[in-house]
Design a protein around this nucleic acid. Structure first.
Lengths: 334, 334
DNA sequence: TTGTATGCGTTATCAA
DNA sequence: TTGATAACGCATACAA
């Protein structure tokens, strides 16, 4: 790697002159600038980023800590984050907590040593269950900003980007009741331990109660045979006329199981799932869904974090991103 | 952020003594070490990573450049890379080329300034189509190692981790012919422009020819209505008795379309797709597939890159990861 | 217009 | 056993 010092030596001028020339300082003559630039070009000189970071005490790097990246929601959020980063000349260091508190703590710890200017984080399942916030607070106290998205913790003071989990499911439920005249609506849940899961179930429950209907929730623990559980439930409760799934898998499984039982979708049974991008391609008929604006969440998270880093203004915000109900082929209403 | 200088001042000793004490140097007395450690602990001192990087001229950071992360294959590879990184005390900076040559070049350019010790990269669709390698060669020439995985370029001298794309599809095809007595086997392709796509199609074609059968390839361009194209083909060619899909979506679509036409799977029609993890959950019956060991590919890529960085031995390797044929419910043979 | 000196935080060499 | 000094590569205040 070529350095300023080497350029200076070859040109018989001082390091600072070279530095200024390359930064197009008005102090330097055009002639010198030209000579310097030419040599720098020939030798493929690039300022050493690490040295710049040490000097400026800024890394232009953000730590992104995700519970997993194989969940398409988080993958798409990451996509959004990266797109802003690339346009704003930031790098992102990605860590995966694998849903564990331990790894989340460790990742924060390892990067909170000057490696990054801030964090974007969705808390791990385990951290959320234990309601553990000390590790987050510690980082914030050391003056490194954190932005929480999607899965947030109430009692952490930082910027947050969240989805209207409650409202979106409330609306979807009301839609099924009022527009599609459904009353035996089943909710499928395998994430009731997460803040977002609770909110979604809550939105469903409240909507049902508001119409004097009885909520029915089928909780699928993670080791369950998801398919068999759903199949059994539908067999034992043939009157079910609508299903809401609050994750991106069980809705499609439900479609397959209902078809197996000879049900016509959406005539006999409406289905609304959660999903993203090409989720609908994977089911027949194409699943209608609550489209969480994952890409947008990523973009806005990065935008807000950068803003909080670069401006001195410190008022904390919580921004709610509305999701969109996307009607495909598993609902009566288009 | 606490620094060595601050600790030294508070303890009335020199910076170098503090540094040595914290690094447990034998030169320092136990007593001093203890005092230093205590204060460091109290003030939550952590050595500034950037300064260490500048001093050592090593970043312990790897640049990972992926075409996309919403494709579950790349997401899982990233997972594998991250797991090794975390265990080896490396950070990863992630960039997404979004399948464009421009972004791929830019990402390499921006990180090849001392920000990373090496790169892991799967080339963008566009780079592959144009067979553009200059940007890769330039980085390698500047002594920053690159590891290519999955989508590789023939004429770039570097370590490579690849999948046995040819062999896996060859084997799958032969299985359908010999074990399941199929002869009218259709291959679905939407990635024929990629090196891996070509290899997979080739594996299929050669296997068919070896048994004196005529290859049939349905190429689905990216704007096509995938569902309609497949449905039409199956209607016009009712004698098709097996389908091989070389991506992770069209196989499931094919299952849904075949069911729509009243075909019994696997009795009338065998289906083998490509996929990962919980792909099978999304179809009914559960799709049989070529399981690309994505996590393993990520792990081995990172392992090999780290090895090439830390050892002086420079012989370049190409490692082939065998994929596994996973029989689920869309094949006769279990 | 150019050059000298200093510092970012750390580590290593050498002197005390 | 401890400390002074230099160096990593860059940027800038200040001197010439």
């Amino acid at each position: 790697m070529t350095t300023l010092k080497e350029l200076a030596k070859l040109l018989n001028i001082s390091v600072s002159t070279v530095s200024k020339a390359l930064n197009d300082s008005h102090e330097i003559s055009e002639n010198t600038k030209k000579r310097v630039r030419e040599l720098a070009n020939n030798l493929n000189y690039k300022p050493n980023r690490i040295a710049q970071q040490l000097k400026s005490n800024k890394t232009r790097t953000i730590g992104v800590i995700l519970p997993t990246v194989t969940n398409p929601f988080f993958a798409e959020v990451l996509h959004g984050i990266e797109s802003v980063a690339a346009n704003s000349d930031y790098d992102i260091i990605v860590c995966l907590s694998n849903e564990t508190l331990y790894k989340e703590e460790r990742s924060l710890e390892l990067l909170a040593n000057g490696s990054v200017d801030g964090f974007i984080l969705a808390v791990a399942r385990e951290s959320q269950i234990q309601n553990h916030t000390a590790h987050l607070q510690k980082v914030i106290d050391s003056n490194i900003p954190i932005l929480l998205f999607d899965r947030v913790m109430e009692n952490v003071d930082c910027n947050k980007i969240i989805v209207d989990d409650y409202q979106s499911v409330f609306d979807a439920t009301l839609h099924l009741i009022q527009k599609e005249k459904r009353s035996q609506i089943l909710l499928l849940s395998n994430i009731e331990e997460l803040s977002v899961g609770k909110l979604r179930i809550n939105g469903y429950t409240k909507a049902m109660q508001s119409q004097n209907l009885e909520p029915k929730v089928l909780r699928l623990s993670h080791n369950d045979k998801v398919e068999q559980s759903i199949l059994n439930y539908l067999e034992e409760n043939p009157n079910i006329d609508a299903i809401i799934s609050i994750d991106h898998v069980t809705g499609i499984v439900a479609i397959n199981m209902a078809k197996k039982l000879g049900k016509n979708i959406p005539k006999d049974l409406s289905v609304i799932g959660f999903g993203y991008e090409n989720t609908p391609l994977l089911s027949d008929p194409k699943i209608s869904l609550v489209h969480q604006m994952a890409f947008k969440i990523g973009k806005m998270s990065m935008d807000l974090l950068i803003e909080s880093i670069t401006t001195t203004d410190t008022e904390l915000k919580t921004i709610v991103i509305p999701s969109e109900l996307e009607f495909n082929q598993t609902t009566l209403f288009k």
